[in-house]
């Protein structure tokens, strides 16, 4: 190979490799939506879907089984609220629609908007934990010193795998962002 041919061959190969790098960058960007879709479809990482009204209509209550649903709460740094569940746990039959209530209070001296982010563990249960109405569907606004009861209507799908007897629902309240 003479010098010119070699320079040409080098340039060609460099171009190909740059395409590989461009592909890797695109792949990285694509991973973000792929990851979210993957989590919603499989329930990995405790991500729950949103409203479940449709499923609730055509469902039978499984009276032979009890499932314990536990409630926990966190307030993230940057949000001057207190936030806790009124009940620490409820025993439910799969398929039965239940109401749980959290209480939030703004202890800051200004109006604050918060957003609750739910997480269900074990992760496998998150596909079967359905929320019909939830304070986490919208942002919540509290005036200075205001206290509010925040309701949550949910059911556990009768398809819940047999080995799961306890489901923990955790809410993290964040200061809502622009």
């Amino acid at each position: 190979m003479n010098a010119e041919d070699r320079a040409l061959a080098n340039r060609k190969l460099v171009k190909k490799l740059l395409w590989v790098i461009a592909g890797a960058i695109l792949f990285t960007i694509a991973l973000v939506p792929l990851y979210n879709v993957m989590c919603q479809v499989t329930g990995f990482n405790g991500k729950t879907g949103n409203s479940a009204e449709q499923a609730a209509k055509s469902m039978k209550v499984d009276n032979t089984r009890w499932v314990t649903v536990e409630f926990t709460s966190n307030v993230m740094p940057g949000l001057a609220w207190t936030f806790y569940p009124k009940q620490t746990s409820i025993r439910v039959h799969p398929g039965q629609i239940e109401l749980a209530t959290y209480v939030a209070k703004n202890i800051a001296n200004q109006e604050v908007i918060g957003q609750a982010i739910p997480s269900v563990s074990p992760g496998q249960a998150s596909l079967y934990f359905k929320k019909i109405e939830c304070f986490c569907f919208q942002r919540q606004t509290l005036k200075p010193g205001e206290s509010k009861e925040m309701p949550l209507t949910f059911f556990v799908s009768p398809d819940l795998p047999k080995q799961i007897e306890t489901i923990t629902l955790s809410y993290a309240f964040y200061s809502a962002v622009k």
């Binding site: 590989v20 790098i21 890797a24 792949f27 990285t28 960007i29 973000v32 993230m76 964040y174 809502a176």
Partner: peptide, 29 residues
Amino acid sequence: IATIPVLAGAVTMLLTDRHFGTHFFDAAG
């Protein structure tokens, strides 16, 4: 060349989360 772009992309998302109001890794958003 296949994986460094992934790291570069991840830390760039971190940078935009920190300063430009994105929420790739920020559960609040």
